[in-house]
Design a protein around this nucleic acid. Structure first.
Lengths: 183, 183
DNA sequence: CTCTCCATGTAAGTGGTTACATGATTTC
DNA sequence: GAAATCATGTAACCACTTACATGGAGAG
């Protein structure tokens, strides 16, 4: 049950409408908890009904009309409680690793290309994160507590991408190693 | 749609019953594509109906009776086709990173303990993988193609766990860094 | 003859994805 | 006033999870 808490966090950082939330998910929170506008609207409805958030009074409440939400005290409490909750990490699920294992059994002529494609994707993601880092966390502002935590989270994303880039590079090198595979 | 292909791979490695599959998922394939027996039985039914696998003739076909499955040629083809399929990596979803981001907004007194708990869990997983590595991939058998690929997959799991261990260690150190937080 | 374990399932619920619907606002 | 875009939704589906059901075989 993480999506509602992701939304509460985003709304506490800044009250927003559904579409604004969607965009912010696309380029910030979504980097470690992605979502679509459909899911977000549905969840906003639930959160409002639960009394965790409320829609700011709008001049013309109607369909297709922008609706801004803000977090209520109950919502903040709910989020604070969730933060201190223990939850085991979800076991890894990687279709790429599974494909490699399958290739060990039935052979895989296209696997190499797929590894290269993933390598490129992870390289790009890594570059994007690094841009964000130099933009949002320049060396001077390392003191403030909220920024320290947000920076740690970003470093997590960066290090993860770096891990994939390194592993894929290594894997490709070993694929045409000693025995040399595909003709 | 990876589970059916995970099952096909496992069955090609060795024909098995549903429960045997479940156990093998628990200590091998499940390391990168976990599943439960309920899901596996359901999927076995679908795969059989699709003509990808068949139940080996049993002496007494009845409920509660062991049923062994093997992969049919159509199943092998299906799997070979899937291996050469392109599929983008799923975006990361980490409740722990989300919790850190939330803690930057509402504060988190219990977060430190949770980081330590995760660190311990990842340490244990890493140790388990390493045992498997020395047991299943001793230095001498590095030539054969199927083993090379399977070893690469295992290295992926190992490196990923090592990433988490390192990142969590780093994060904990920075949490009581210059500013020093929780008493 | 009961208890436990092996083995195969059924059913309900949840979270996420994909496809589609519809009203409002701006642009040409 | 037609087209594009902003904005909010509905509906159907799918994979996965959790809880429960049932039957057979061996141990005491």
């Amino acid at each position: 049950m993480s999506l509602p808490h992701a939304i509460l966090t985003a709304l506490l950082e800044k009250p927003s409408s559904g579409l604004e939330l969607t965009r912010r998910f696309d380029r910030s929170i979504g980097y470690f908890w992605s979502s679509t506008h459909q899911q977000i609207y549905r969840e906003l409805g639930k959160l409002e009904q639960a009394g965790y958030i409320r829609a700011l009074p709008a001049p013309v409440p109607a369909r297709g009309q922008k609706k801004e939400y803000e977090v209520l005290p109950a919502g903040r409490e709910e989020l604070a409680g969730w933060v201190d909750t223990a939850e085991d990490p979800k076991p890894l699920r990687s279709a790429l690793l599974l494909r490699m294992r399958a290739a060990a059994v039935v052979g895989g002529r296209g696997l190499r290309a797929e590894l290269e494609r993933h390598l490129e994707l992870h390289r790009r993601q890594l570059a994007e994160y690094r841009e964000i880092e130099v933009r949002d966390f320049p060396p001077e502002r390392r003191a403030a507590e909220p920024d320290r935590l947000r920076h740690l989270v970003l470093r997590g994303g960066i290090d993860l991408e770096r891990f994939w880039v390194e592993w894929l590079t290594q894997a490709l090198r070993e694929l045409d190693g000693p025995g040399t595979a595909t003709p």
